[in-house]
Every structure is written in structure tokens, then in C-alpha cells.
Amino acid sequence: MSLEEDFSLVTDGKACLEDIIKEINKYKMQHEAMLKEQNIIISAIDNSKLFAKEFNQRTLERKMSFEEDSKRHTEILKKEKDKKSTAQKEQNRLRMEILKMKEELESLEMNNNSLKQQTEISTAVPEKKVVFHGETAQGAHFLSFDVNPRIVFPMEGGTALITFEEEDVAQNILSMKDHQVQLGECTINVVAKPVQFLVPRYVEMDTQVCLRRILISNLPKKESEDRLLDKLQIHFSKKKNGGGEVEDIDMLRDSGSVVITFLDYDIAKGLTDKQDHEIEIEKNKKHKVKVTPFLNGEISRLQTCDSVCQSTVQLTGIPAIMDPESLQDHLEIHFQKTTNGGGEVDSIIYNPLGESKLALFEEDPPKGSQSV
């Protein structure tokens, strides 16, 4: 080998070494870059793990908080449901109480209306002779009137009222309650019920004199009502008799008295001051009547009590299967028989279905029987 060839080889080897060094430096730089990138990735992984750990911790805390909130919400919801259930029960109780109070109020209103119908009656006290028998009363201004009871009892359709001569018979019929009455070839079932009233036990009234009305009593008995009213109106409308223009005139049939209403307020007092007046009923024939003040009354105190008619029985559930007279006769015959628990019938009245009647109850006569 020549010298030139050796020099060439050395030169080529040096160039190759430099290239290798460059290549090594290149890979070294790449390695360092990869180490840095690896460190960044490791740091990122560590951060991710830390974040994941913190996230899991927060998730666990949130889960526990949610479970606590859910449990608390469930408890609150249960309490609210219990409150709602309690409130619903209380509301139902109050509703039932309101319905009961309404029923009681309706019953009181019915009793009040019945009592009002019995007490709101225009009455007059005709002049009566009195005598002292040695009895006294409390109070210097004590005043009372004895009033015979007259109770109007409305009968429903398909009912009957039977009054027996003996109270025991009526009580026996009531105790049996259900009765089968033979009507020819058929039989009807009726129910016996007691007759009950709400009656005044004690009454106090505030009264005042009506300035336009007068009450006329001691009237002639034989005159017809229309003729008598005409004669009274003519007499008391004349100024020479102390009268004036008459607005209205009414007959009070329960007392046999007459009420006259004047247009002016200064007529009534002059007539009542005189009291005794002679009116001409027929030509040249006069009759003395008594003129007294007319009192307007208002009940200031009222006490009531329940009253049961001991001798009278009410029969209900009576069908209209024959004419009323025949049906009433069959009822009377049935309840007269002792074999049916009955006895002597004092009076009976039957009210068919679809009709209405008013039965009048009055004070028992001295023998003790009840009249209808």
C-alpha cells in the first residue's frame, strides 16, 4: 500500500468518527428530550392519580352527603305524610262534627219553627168574672193568665191518629210497635209511634199598647159574623161615637173578640178610656160591648219541654188500597179488639197518601181522655 492510500484511510476514518459523534450527540439530545418528556408524562400521571384520588374522595363525600340528604328527606317526607294523615283525620272529624252540628241546627230550627207556629197566635183575653179564694202570689205586680192548650199537629200522608179511652191500651199498642191489619182478603203492615210535642213550659212577654187598634169583647152571640163586623165598622167609623176611618177589622174566632184598626193614631185611646159602648144591632135595639186596648206582645223569655200524648197513637205506613172511610173503619175495628192488643177507641182520623191534615190537640177533659 502506498503512502497516499494510507493517508486516505486515516482521513476517511476521522470523518466517520465525527459522524458517529454527531450521531451520538443527536441520540443523546433525543434521549434527554425523551427523559424530559417522560418526566412530564410521569408528572402528569402523578397529577392525574392525585386528581383521581381527590375526585374519588369528593365523590365518596358527595355520595355520603346525598345518602344523608336522601335519608333526611325521607324522614321529612314521612313526617309530612304523618302530618297530612293526621290533618286529614282531623279534617274528617271536623267535617263529621260540622254535619252533626248542621243536623242538630236543622232539628233545632224545625223545633223552633214548630214552636213559633204554636206561639205566634193572635189571642185576646175576654172579660171574665173573678173571685178571691184566699190564694196569694209572689211580687206586687204579679199577673198571669190560664190558657187552654191548643196544639196543631201536622199529619203526613198515609198516617192515622187513634185516641184510646184508656192510656194503658195506647201504651200497649206502642210497645207492640208493628201491627198487621186485615183488610178483607189482604193484610197491611203499620207501625205505631208516640205523638210528641215541643210545648212552652214557661213564657214571659213584653207587651205594649197598640195606638191604632182596639179589642172589642162581650159581643152578641146570635148575630152572623159578617153582619156583626159590618155593624161594628159602621158604629166605630162615626166621629159622633168617638171613632174614625177604619183601616181593617178582624174576628178572633178563638176568643170571640174583634180587632179594629184605625188609620189615625188618636182614635183608639179615646174609645178605650170609655170602655163600655152601645152599638145598634137592630133598629131600636142596642147591645153593650166592651172596648179595651189591644196589646202587641213579644216573647222575652221562653222555656220549652217535650210532651208525649199518653192516650193517642200515630200509625204510619198505611197504603191507599181502598177508600179512606172504609180504611178508617177497618183500622178502628182492628184496634178495638183486645185480641190485637187494643181497646175502646175514643176517636180516630186517617189522612190518605198525597193529602195533608192538621189535627187539633186540646186539654184533656176531667175524665182523663185525650181529644184529637
Score class of each variant (00 low, 15 high):
residue 74 T to S: 08
residue 130 V to P: 08
residue 65 S to V: 07
residue 174 L to H: 04
residue 137 A to V: 14
residue 86 T to P: 00
residue 124 A to D: 01
residue 151 I to R: 08
residue 62 R to Q: 08
residue 135 E to H: 10
residue 74 T to G: 05
residue 142 F to H: 14
residue 139 G to H: 05
residue 145 F to Y: 14
residue 94 L to C: 08
residue 137 A to T: 12
residue 132 F to T: 14
residue 104 E to W: 07
residue 165 E to F: 02
residue 85 S to V: 01
residue 89 K to R: 09
residue 165 E to H: 05
residue 149 P to Q: 00
residue 174 L to Q: 01
residue 142 F to Y: 12
residue 71 K to C: 05
residue 150 R to S: 05
residue 165 E to C: 03
residue 173 I to L: 03
residue 62 R to C: 09
residue 116 K to D: 12
residue 161 L to Q: 06
residue 93 R to C: 01
residue 171 Q to S: 08
residue 140 A to N: 14
residue 143 L to I: 12
residue 138 Q to W: 11
residue 107 S to G: 08
residue 177 K to T: 15
residue 158 G to L: 01
residue 98 I to G: 03
residue 177 K to A: 14
residue 119 T to P: 06
residue 105 L to S: 12
residue 64 M to V: 08
residue 129 K to I: 15
residue 84 K to L: 04
residue 128 K to A: 03
residue 134 G to V: 07
residue 145 F to W: 10
residue 111 N to K: 15
residue 130 V to Y: 09
residue 70 S to K: 10
residue 80 E to T: 03
residue 114 S to M: 13
residue 100 K to D: 05
residue 142 F to N: 09
residue 159 T to K: 06
residue 79 K to M: 00
residue 120 E to M: 13
residue 162 I to Y: 01
residue 96 M to N: 11
residue 174 L to Y: 02
residue 167 E to A: 11
residue 156 E to G: 15
residue 102 K to S: 10
residue 114 S to E: 10
residue 71 K to R: 09
residue 144 S to G: 13
residue 159 T to A: 05
residue 160 A to Q: 02
residue 158 G to D: 05
residue 105 L to F: 11
residue 123 T to V: 15
residue 99 L to W: 04
residue 161 L to M: 06
residue 83 K to E: 01
residue 136 T to F: 06
residue 150 R to K: 13
residue 124 A to C: 13
residue 145 F to Q: 06
residue 156 E to L: 15
residue 82 D to F: 02
residue 147 V to S: 10
residue 83 K to V: 00
residue 71 K to V: 03
residue 158 G to V: 10
residue 86 T to R: 04
residue 74 T to M: 05
residue 154 P to I: 06
residue 69 D to Q: 09
residue 106 E to G: 01
residue 152 V to I: 14
residue 130 V to D: 07
residue 132 F to M: 12
